[in-house]
């Protein structure tokens, strides 16, 4: 028990991402309204983005933009442990914008469903298909 608390604290980025991820997963399965499912999917996506970005962090490091790095330099002494890992930032930068555009597609599909069935509640759509 004595080393349980430090363990929790040392990995609390994972717990934050985990909680968001589970909220999103539950919402996607349990909610009846398709719009709420889409919102849950966005929360799930935010959890993944948080997880990735927190993976790239290093203790005491700064953002991945080199200090005093203007113009052309030959050899500038650079210590990789001073800068956060740029790779997760790159991956998530594109993921955020692509996430927004796929959210747009999801909303367009919802509007289309609403046009055909007059509702976006899952059970009512199933009833309207069976008729």
């Amino acid at each position: 028990m004595a080393d349980f608390l430090p363990y929790i604290v040392a990995k609390y980025n994972y717990w934050a991402a985990l909680v968001l991820l589970l909220i999103g997963l539950y919402g996607m399965i349990a909610k009846n309204n398709l719009l709420k499912k889409v919102i849950a999917m966005s929360i799930f996506q935010s959890a993944i983005i948080l997880f990735y970005v927190s993976m790239g962090d290093k203790k005491g490091s700064t953002i991945p933009i080199l200090l005093h790095g203007h113009g052309e330099h030959g050899a500038l002494a650079i210590d990789p442990s001073q800068y956060a890992n740029p790779l997760p930032h790159v991956l998530m930068l594109t993921a955020i914008v692509v996430g927004v555009s796929t959210l747009g597609v999801a909303l367009a599909v919802l509007q289309k469903i609403h046009r055909v069935h007059g509702t976006i509640e899952e059970d009512e759509i199933l009833e309207s298909i069976e008729e």
């Binding site: 991945p64 933009i65 080199l66 200090l67 790095g69 203007h70 113009g71 052309e72 330099h73 030959g74 050899a75 500038l76 650079i78 990789p80 800068y83 740029p86 790779l87 930032h89 790159v90 930068l93």
Partner: peptide, 15 residues
């Protein structure tokens, strides 16, 4: 990336 990006691309923003 952190060590070489400035040398190879002259872009201080590694991202």
């Amino acid at each position: 990336y952190i060590e070489k990006s400035l040398e190879e691309t002259a872009v201080p923003n590694i991202v």
